[in-house]
């Protein structure tokens, strides 16, 4: 078994008994996409919903739109079939609540929305999710069967 770490604003792919792990998702969203028959999958830790129009983008893994595009390309290159792809997502929490919270603060909700919209556009079925609320999550994605283990600080571990 090979444990592969995915850092913030990063993504990685694995196969067979690889486990892709991303720790401490707050407002960021972890997106696992895989083809369970081929046992090929990838995990992205996206930070922001989309590339700002007025900036050049030198880290595609940071934004939901470009990260998912790149993730799909990488898992297809490894031999996954685009028709068999499914997804599981976690994160997008609102870690702090402020009395005067502006819409800008609700970045977690915007990240979730963006990820779901892109999955729909790409016709990738969303099998399970653990999103929103106000706590951090760690995601362990077992590529061989698509199982995703969600760990939090207080609650019990959960399997998606």
């Amino acid at each position: 078994m090979n444990k592969i770490r995915v850092k913030m604003a990063d993504l990685n792919v694995g196969q067979n008994d690889d486990v892709l792990i991303t720790s401490g998702l707050g407002s960021c969203v972890g997106v696992a996409i895989y083809d369970s028959k081929a046992q090929i999958g990838g995990l992205a830790h996206v930070m922001l919903p989309e590339v700002p129009s007025n900036r050049e983008n030198n880290n595609p893994a940071k934004y939901a739109d470009t990260a998912m595009e790149l993730l799909l390309k990488k898992i297809k290159n490894k031999g996954a079939s685009s028709r068999k792809l499914v997804a599981k997502i976690a994160g997008g929490a609102q870690m702090f609540s402020f009395d005067n919270s502006s819409s800008k603060m609700k970045i977690g909700a915007r990240n979730i929305e963006a990820v779901k919209r892109i999955l729909k556009e790409k016709q990738i079925r969303l099998l399970a999710e653990d999103v929103g609320k106000d706590y951090g999550r760690t995601m362990e994605f077992y590529v061989e069967d698509g199982r995703v283990l969600i760990k939090t600080v207080k609650g019990k571990d959960q399997v998606l």
Binding site: G24, G26, M95, Y135, G136, R137
Partner: peptide, 9 residues
């Protein structure tokens, strides 16, 4: 909570 989740926000 987890340091990572707090720091990223």
């Amino acid at each position: 909570d987890m340091a990572g989740a707090i720091l990223e926000v």
